[in-house]
């Protein structure tokens, strides 16, 4: 009875994990250095930023929306944080928290704009965030005069290489965010409303809820995670640049979708998203270690993404039969 319940939960929340485990096993067998602590730790670092963005993206996609602007908003956030942190008039103790604040605030402001425009004029988020993608990119080039910002304080950079028992700090932050988000989605009224609206917005509205507020908030959350991701980016690479982040939206969307979240909204989980991001990271790492060429890697990665989603449809059927 209990094993059935556990199996059901596994299938529902983390069924795609089977694919991840399978990939890891294959790489461990065929790539000698894959299953080393060092390499695993590297993969953790490499998937952290995408995971954080994908958490916010999951909220938006659960509502049936999409945010294409995360890449350029990320660049904007890094530059604003970079400008703050390198300001000589600020004492270090204030500069670092202020930079984090600036980055989060910028991300949330962009998210607020996205959500508000979508709801106020009933435009699909695809269009609005496509516009934001360009606006944020233009703004960041303007603000930075298209220059890269570097030479952050040493104290700040030191955070980036911190790790505990081989687990990098930035990955711990990413996992914490996933857990917090998971708690919000599964245990709070807000999370319940996200799923409900994603399934049937009109029914929720007619049950006496203001659905617009929830939808705008989801975009603000997405912006906040982008702001956080920007800080992680700076911690990892010690650089803030107006041209970074191209194509980040696609990686984030891929992680969310591989993780089993439905593009039409209402179904999915953040644990799935974390696994989705891990699958992408493991593929990039493992295939490169196998010595595969860039072109072949792209082909294989693309094919495995599609295959993972196909396997996911079988998982859904299996879980239905169990219930």
């Amino acid at each position: 009875m209990d094993t059935k319940k556990i199996a059901y939960l596994m299938l529902n929340e983390a069924g795609i994990g089977v694919v991840l485990v399978f990939l890891c096993l294959v790489f461990s067998v065929f790539v000698p250095k894959f299953a080393t602590m060092n390499n695993i730790s590297n993969i953790f670092t490499q998937i952290s930023i995408n995971t954080v963005i994908a958490v916010g993206m999951t909220f938006v996609i659960l509502l049936g929306g999409i945010d294409l602007s995360v890449g350029s908003v990320l660049a904007l956030c890094t530059i604003l944080a970079g400008l703050t942190i390198t300001k000589e008039t600020l004492p270090l103790g204030a500069a670092i928290p202020l930079a984090v604040l600036a980055s989060m605030a910028a991300g949330m402001a962009c998210g607020l704009f996205n959500g508000w425009v979508c709801e106020r004029w009933k435009i699909h988020s695809f269009v609005v965030t496509l516009g934001m993608l360009n606006m944020a990119r233009g703004a960041v080039l303007q603000v930075s005069n298209s220059r890269t910002i570097y030479s952050f304080p040493k104290e700040f950079n030191a955070f980036g290489t911190l790790s505990y028992y081989g687990i990098p700090l930035i990955f711990i932050i990413a996992v914490l965010l996933v857990l917090i988000g998971h708690f919000i989605l599964k245990k709070t009224v807000f999370g319940r409303m996200i799923y409900a609206i994603g399934n049937n917005e009109e029914a929720v509205r007619l049950s006496g809820h203001n659905t617009k507020i929830y939808k705008v908030t989801a975009f603000v959350i997405c912006g906040a995670t982008v702001g956080l991701a920007a800080i992680l980016y700076m911690l990892r690479l010690n650089i803030a640049s107006p041209i970074l982040g191209n194509g980040f939206e696609l990686s984030a969307i891929a992680a969310v979708v591989i993780g089993g979240t439905s593009m039409s909204g209402g179904k999915g989980s953040l644990i799935g998203t974390l696994i989705g991001a891990a699958i992408i990271g493991v593929l990039n790492n493992g295939l490169l270690l196998m010595g595969m060429s860039d072109f072949a890697r792209q082909i294989v990665t693309g094919a495995i993404i599609v295959a993972a989603v196909i396997i996911d449809t079988y998982r859904a059927r299996l879980s239905k039969m169990l219930s």
């Binding site: 490499q46 930023i49 970074l244 191209n246 990039n284 790492n285 490169l288 270690l289």
Partner: peptide, 12 residues
């Protein structure tokens, strides 16, 4: 790309 160079080299 900066980030991609970092990832690729780390893996190599």
């Amino acid at each position: 790309e900066i980030e991609e160079a970092n990832t690729v080299l780390t893996n190599l």
